[in-house]
């Protein structure tokens, strides 16, 4: 079977690197969808988790987020978002996919951050309060840095999930980043297999790059002591998938 060599040929064909359906354009599209989704998810999930975690309230939210968030099929949520946007008369090209991805990204960010904040050593927190730290500083200068590794792990899981699930967005409408190659190649039968393989390799490569960036960020941003703290409590894990 020449699928492998066909895939390599597809990836190295200059024609596939130009135009609106070219690899750079699709990469940009994929990144736009992923970055906008992550930005919105972070803006929602992080403050909520920080505040609720600091107050040690909202255990119910955490459980609900973990259980329901994990159980929602990404395929279903993408199509459901498509349905809603059809009803509202908004283009299916970008926002329904983002809406679905935001919903999928919130649970891992929220749960990891919340768990990390609530498991910060209470003696540390008490000590901080004892020396007269205001609550805001207890949260931002103590709880947040100490829980950073687990929070970062949650963000990484969410990002990887968002980037791989963005692929499914290509079944909704046009656009869809690298998913376009996979959905189109699939519909085009055997001649499309090179495109499918090429798209899958590109996506796997993108995920690998993102994981490396996170690994680098962890090493650069977090002091060794804090990193070790993180590993011990790193319990929440990857969910869902495209």
């Amino acid at each position: 079977m020449g699928i492998l060599s066909d895939g390599i040929e597809w990836l190295t064909d200059p024609a596939n690197w130009e135009g609106t359906n070219g690899i750079p354009a699709r990469l940009l599209e994929h990144l736009q969808i992923s970055i906008v989704s992550m930005a919105i998810a972070l803006a929602i999930a992080l403050p909520m988790a920080l505040v609720l975690g600091h107050l040690h309230k909202g255990e119910f939210f955490v459980n609900a987020a973990v259980n329901i968030g994990r159980a929602i099929p990404s395929f279903g949520i993408v199509i459901f978002a498509g349905l809603l946007f059809l009803e509202w008369g908004i283009s299916l090209k970008f926002w329904p996919v983002v809406a679905a991805l935001v919903l999928l990204a919130i649970p891992p960010i929220f749960t990891n951050t919340y768990t990390a904040i609530t498991t910060v050593d209470p003696e540390l927190v008490e000590a901080a309060r004892g020396v007269g730290m205001p609550e805001r500083r207890v949260l931002l200068s103590l709880e947040l840095p100490v829980s950073a590794p687990v929070t970062l792990a949650g963000i990484k899981i969410a990002t990887v999930q968002v980037v791989s699930t963005a692929t499914i967005g290509a079944i909704l409408s046009s656009g869809g980043g690298f998913g376009r190659y996979i959905v189109d190649g699939f519909g085009q039968g055997p001649p499309g297999h090179a495109k499918v393989l090429g798209g899958a390799v590109l996506l796997a490569g993108l995920v690998l790059v993102i994981e490396s960036i996170f690994a680098l960020a962890e090493r650069r941003l977090l002091p060794e002591g804090i990193r070790r703290l993180g590993r011990a409590t790193d319990v929440v894990d990857a969910i869902g998938h495209g």
């Binding site: 059809l86 409408s173 046009s174 959905v183």
Partner: peptide, 21 residues
């Protein structure tokens, strides 16, 4: 003529009506 791949009919109809295609 350019081509936009839109798998399902309903999505194509919506794209036609809002001028994407």
């Amino acid at each position: 003529l350019k081509f936009e791949s839109i798998q399902e009919g309903a999505a194509r109809i919506a794209a036609l009506e809002n001028g994407e295609i």
